[in-house]
Write a protein that binds this DNA or RNA. Sequence first.
DNA 1: AATAAGCGCAACCGCCTGGAC
DNA 2: GGTCCAGGCGGTTGCGCTTAT
Length: 194
Amino acid sequence: MRNPCDKRGTNRGAWSKEEDRKLIDYIRLHGEGCWRSLPKAAGLLRCGESCRLRWINYLRPDVKRGNFKEDEADLIIKLHALLGNRWSLIAGRLPGRTDNEVKNYWNSHLRKKLKSMGVDPDNHRLTQKAPLRRSRSSHSASLSTDAVTSHENMKKCSSTVLPDLNLDLTICTPSSLEGQRLDRTATPTLLLFH
DNA sequence: AATAAGCGCAACCGCCTGGAC
DNA sequence: GGTCCAGGCGGTTGCGCTTAT
């Protein structure tokens, strides 16, 4: 945003229960709409972006609170190996989890966990002093070249689907992507250039 | 018991993208 | 095609709590 928040006359920092209640009540009545005009309409002295984050990361009824389970952590590691820091895509595969939550969990827990296992958390490769064998998360997927991407403009690519992750894995040349923009909200697609 | 250090999480910041005009 | 606006996103910050000394 070019001018994300007009800081004059707006509250900042932690939300009070009263502010939470106003935001919840407003969204229950009117739904998620124009975030920029929402604060005024809801009687909140916050910027729209602050309201959006508070709702998405904390107040939304389907947000799952509490510790990550082992299978969730395992899935995050697998997805991070494939997608990198695409937190919203990763969170999209974890029902009830938000991108912010996944990102925080990665930075505070999983990075250390991988490092202690001798795995570089940035590229999921074994470090030289690796004490343990290769993590499952860094295994590459087996490819079936008969699968064909559904994207019309990726005709030069071959792809496969990773059913356990619900991911499209696409192999293509950089030239086949010329003039394209990647849709950040679409089904996660891993692109391998060759 | 007091203080420092470390950690986790919520919130903020600024960039990117898509749509409307 | 260019500009502006609004929403989405990832990186970063800062506060409060917990643990160590």
